[in-house]
């Protein structure tokens, strides 16, 4: 059912794309560190300026090429008038991507919150929230707490670790020891949590 092209045609196309150079596979494509697309598509990204910055830092040669091309294009546009524009179809609508407002992670305070709740009548559990903000693997952390305190420990919900037993005071010591990137000041003792522990 899938139509197959003539081999020549494909070859021609590939040659067009890669300047008739012998290609070895897999092809390595340079991806932009800012928008993650191949660098030739950066100009369609909302934060093109940031992409440029990134490019200048990481691939200076490509950046220079890009600059050269832009200058040429600008010169061509002013000299040739609207010639190139006229040929093309115009399209309406708002095609441009908007910059997304995903500053949530940045706005989230970088602090680890410890709290205690009771589970049942006489059992205590410790909740640790906010470790994810430090790019710590929660599952590994839960496992670590479990072995450290010899108790049950699990990741509950999204960004919270539940440790069985009241180990809040120990945690204040253990966390900065284990992860030096978490400063002691960033650990917040929230005391008794009103929220009932998840059963």
């Amino acid at each position: 059912m899938h139509a197959v092209n003539e081999p020549d045609e494909i070859k021609k196309k590939v040659e067009e794309c890669h300047g008739a150079v012998e290609v070895t596979y897999p092809i390595e494509v340079k991806y932009c560190g800012n928008c993650s697309m191949p660098i030739e598509y950066c100009e369609y990204y909302a934060e093109y300026d940031k992409c440029k910055e990134w490019l200048a830092k990481n691939y200076p040669e490509d950046y220079e090429k890009l600059m050269l091309r832009e200058v040429e294009e600008a010169a061509g546009a002013s000299a040739g008038g609207m010639d190139s524009d006229r040929k093309r179809q115009k399209r309406g609508g708002k095609g441009m991507l908007r910059a997304k407002k995903d500053n949530e992670d940045d706005n989230e305070l970088k602090c680890v919150r410890l709290s205690c709740t009771t589970r049942g009548k006489n059992k205590r559990v410790t909740l640790v929230a906010g470790l994810a903000a430090f790019k710590i693997d929660l599952r590994a952390a839960a496992k670590f707490f479990g072995t450290k305190f010899a108790c049950g420990s699990s990741v509950s919900g999204d960004k919270e670790i539940v440790i069985q037993g009241d180990v809040k005071d120990d945690l204040l010591e253990v966390i900065p020891d284990k992860w030096p990137e978490v400063p002691r000041d960033a650990i917040d003792d929230c005391g008794e949590s009103k929220k009932r522990g998840q059963s």
Partner: peptide, 24 residues
Amino acid sequence: HKFPYFVTMQQVDKGAIRFVLSGA
């Protein structure tokens, strides 16, 4: 991107890029 040859290619013009990139 690594093996571009095995799928049939269709080329769109420049003006269409931004629309395709937003999923049209």
